[in-house]
């Protein structure tokens, strides 16, 4: 068991270090800290300018949590895409590794980045935009950030398969982030979205977690938002399983068509 865990963490660490090209100080700080804060400020000020001053808290919380899928999609989709671009995918396909473990290990070290990005954004929301923490249930905040990051991680792992198939990470990352931004209630409440978009919102990550987080800022306790937490977890687990199956299907297709890997 110790050997299994050591190997799992080694794989997670080397995959992260070897394939995450934002892993230098300038790229890391700008993507994990600066960009999310800038987005929070821009959207919140735009909302205030548009006369929605009552919704300031809502915008800050929405955009701060939106930083989670943005940083995760950037990191995780790079990891999948470059595995193919660097010609190392064949090493995985010809290895003895358990494919599910390989797949999950690719997300592990991106998880703390998501928490960092969201926490920093909330902090600067308080510092610059008067985000009100007075009624917040702190246990709910901590659990919700962990759960939202988990479900977004699973969604990005799922989308990673498209980065392999397309040998391109920017397009699938943009699609993933676009879907979350539009349908999960980050800016526009889902009950005000056109019908089908609202329905999509129910099965994308962040929607339920974000709704619970907004409630937590208004005083709801962890127990009050447990249903949304469970729903958010179920959405994440569904993407995790679907993504793992898709990863296996891609491998089978690569072997059948011979087109996914040219290193060997």
């Amino acid at each position: 068991m110790t050997a299994f865990l050591t190997n799992f963490f080694l794989r997670a660490y080397y995959s992260y270090k070897g394939l995450f090209l934002w892993l230098n100080w300038t790229a890391f700080i700008s993507n994990v800290f600066i960009a999310p804060v800038v987005f929070v400020v821009i959207v919140t000020l735009t909302g205030r300018f548009a006369g929605q001053s009552d919704s300031a808290n809502s915008y800050v919380i929405g955009m701060a949590t939106y930083a989670i899928p943005v940083i995760l999609s950037g990191g995780i989709l790079q990891s999948f895409c470059y595995e193919r671009t660097f010609g190392t995918l064949s090493l995985i396909y010809a290895s003895r590794s358990n494919r599910w473990v390989t797949y999950w290990s690719k997300g592990l070290l991106h998880y703390p980045n998501a928490l960092l990005a969201a926490s920093t954004s909330l902090f600067f929301g308080w510092l610059l935009l008067d985000l009100d923490f007075s009624g917040l249930s702190w246990p709910a905040l901590i659990v919700l950030l962990l759960v939202i990051s988990f479900s977004c991680l699973c969604f990005c792992l799922f989308m990673g398969n498209f980065a392999i198939a397309l040998r391109e990470w920017i397009l699938p990352a943009a699609i993933a982030n676009g879907i979350v931004l539009i349908t999960s209630g980050v800016v526009v409440p889902i009950d005000q979205l056109p019908g089908f978009l609202g329905e999509i919102g129910r099965v994308v990550p962040l929607t339920h977690g974000l709704s619970a987080l907004r409630a937590a800022f208004e005083g709801a306790s962890l127990g009050d938002v447990i249903d949304d937490i469970v729903y958010e977890l179920v959405v994440g687990l569904s993407y995790l399983i679907a993504g793992g199956l898709l990863f296996s299907l891609l491998e089978a297709n690569a072997k059948r068509t011979g087109t996914y890997e040219s290193a060997i």
């Binding site: 299994f4 050591t6 080694l10 070897g18 090209l21 290895s95």
Partner: peptide, 16 residues
């Protein structure tokens, strides 16, 4: 972006 030793050790972990 990995060292030579890390490349080899990653392959070891990959192969359990």
């Amino acid at each position: 972006r990995l060292t030579g030793k890390q490349n080899v050790r990653y392959f070891g972990a990959l192969n359990r």
